[in-house]
Design a protein around this nucleic acid. Structure first.
Length: 423
RNA sequence: GGAGAGAUGGCCGAGCUGGUCGAAGGCGCACCCCUGCUAAGGGUGUAUACGCCAAAAGCGUAUCGAGGGUUCGAAUCCCUCUCUCUCCGCCA
């Protein structure tokens, strides 16, 4: 959520900044709504003050044994008018809230302007895509040949966009998770956390998935209104919802492995082959809770932590800064890491690292106590995949394939695979 | 699933026979005074959000788990929900 003061005092400028990311803010209707809110709120508060004064007078009169009939009559009159005004105020405040919750974050100044993913800009590249002296296969064919990756069985058990893995492939998948967690906890200073995989609506509202993107989520039926998490970002970031973090605990750095569940509504026909886009996938997520003045530095560092995983796995990648039009709803700035997939002859997203500034924090009421002022201030939240495990597995299969159908296991993973060299 | 207890400020904890309660007291914290070290003592202050205001000051409003109700007036009474704890049952 944006600072509501922007909508009150700096509406035109806010609209201009939102226009950069292709969001049209209806300034005249918001201005009118705000005008109404202000008027009703002022009137209500004034009347509430009158009621309080009057009620106090009644109490004092009664205590002294005086007749309070006139005061009581006045109180009744005020209360009736107040009931009506308070109802109006609640309505208009809910209206303002609805509008505010639907407005995306302002893009940071350093974000290039653009309409869609075609206008994202490459920041840097790492590694050299391997030259094959044969036509490299994609991970679906590689997995099928190994007999360890099976989409048909998954379709029988569940449906489309699921996978079944067996044997050493399933083990490599698990090894990747251990490797990533170990790296981030030992080398990058993150604290490992374990969290619920189902969350309530308040948490999803906090990180920005609700109310606007409910169609992307799996919701549970029954008496619990739970949703399956689409990313660990939701439970992990919400650790600090409705809390004031003491300054000596800052910054908070969490790493968390969870499964992620996404309905992928609206992506029909996209990436239907293989395990690039699944309803269920594993991800190791990095989350940082930092102060405002440190958030952009922390964002760069976190992106570097995700890159380190690819570097140690020796997978070629490039770093893209997303343009204003391609960024997610809550983000102020996003870097995507794209790994090279020989099977597609393309770079594909494997991590997305975003700075949300105080956008999520305001929704969550997540603050820290600034020792300089002694006052609570909104934190900045940052997160990134470090990495998407399924896609990392795909990248390994395709980049490490051999002509004979075997797949070499990256050196850093061998200790997790009992020294095994090939799948 | 059954029976009970509870949720108050950064923390602990009164208040809960409705009015003077944004809330006693303590701890913690900050500043000041005293004390030539140490220890102890005294004083003052110490929530958040919002509104009016260019801003500060100030004034006002709301908030005692959440929501609703009763009442002229609710931390206090009633209802619903959420969460926590204890006991029993069941269970990985």
């Amino acid at each position: 959520m944006l600072d509501p003061r922007l909508l009150r005092a700096d509406l035109e400028n806010t609209a201009r900044q939102l226009a950069r990311r292709g969001f049209v803010l209806d300034t005249s209707s918001i201005a009118a709504m705000e005008e109404r809110r202000k008027r009703i709120q002022t009137d209500t508060q004034q009347l509430q003050a009158e009621r309080n004064v009057n009620a106090k007078a009644v109490g004092q009169a009664k205590a002294k044994g005086q007749d309070a009939a006139a005061l009581l009559a006045e109180s009744v009159r005020i209360s009736e008018r107040l009931k009506q005004l308070e109802a109006e105020l609640a309505t208009v405040q809910a209206e303002v809230e609805d509008v505010a919750l639907g407005i995306p974050n302002l893009p940071h100044n350093s974000v290039p302007e653009g309409k869609d993913e075609k206008e994202n800009q490459e920041c840097r590249r790492w590694g050299e895509p391997r030259k094959f002296d044969y036509m490299p296969k994609d991970h679906v064919d590689i997995g099928a040949a190994l007999g360890t990756l099976d989409f048909d069985t998954a379709a029988k058990i569940a449906g489309a966009r699921f996978a079944v893995m067996q044997g050493s492939l399933a083990r490599l998948h698990r090894a990747l998770i251990q490797f990533m967690l170990d790296l981030h906890t030992r080398a990058h200073g993150y604290t490992e956390v374990y969290v619920p995989y189902m969350v309530n609506a308040a948490s999803l509202r906090g990180t920005g998935q609700l109310p606007k993107f409910e169609q992307d989520l799996f919701a549970l039926k029954g008496e619990h209104n739970y949703y399956l998490i689409p990313t660990a970002e939701v439970p992990v970031t919400n650790i600090v919802r409705d809390t004031i973090v003491e300054s000596e605990r800052m910054p908070l750095r969490y790493v968390c492995h969870t499964p992620c569940f996404r309905s992928e509504a609206g992506s029909y026909g996209k990436d239907t082959r293989g395990m690039i886009r699944q309803h269920q996938f594993e991800k190791v997520e990095l989350v940082q809770i930092v102060s405002a003045e440190k958030s952009y530095q922390a964002h760069e560092e976190l992106t570097g932590h995700a890159e380190k995983v690819l570097q140690l796995l020796e997978l070629p990648y490039r770093v893209m800064v997303l343009c204003t039009g391609d960024m997610g709803f809550s983000a102020a700035k996003t870097y995507d890491l794209e790994v090279w997939l020989p099977g597609q002859q393309k770079f594909r997203e494997i991590s997305s690292c975003s700075n949300f500034e105080d956008f999520q924090a305001r929704r969550m009421q997540a603050r820290w106590r600034n020792p300089g002022t002694g006052k609570p201030e909104l934190v900045h939240t940052i997160n990134g995949s470090g990495l998407a495990v399924g896609r990392t597995l795909v990248a390994i299969l395709e980049n490490y394939q051999e002509r004979d159908g075997r797949v070499r296991i990256p050196t850093v993973l061998r200790t997790y695979m009992q020294g095994q060299e090939y799948l």
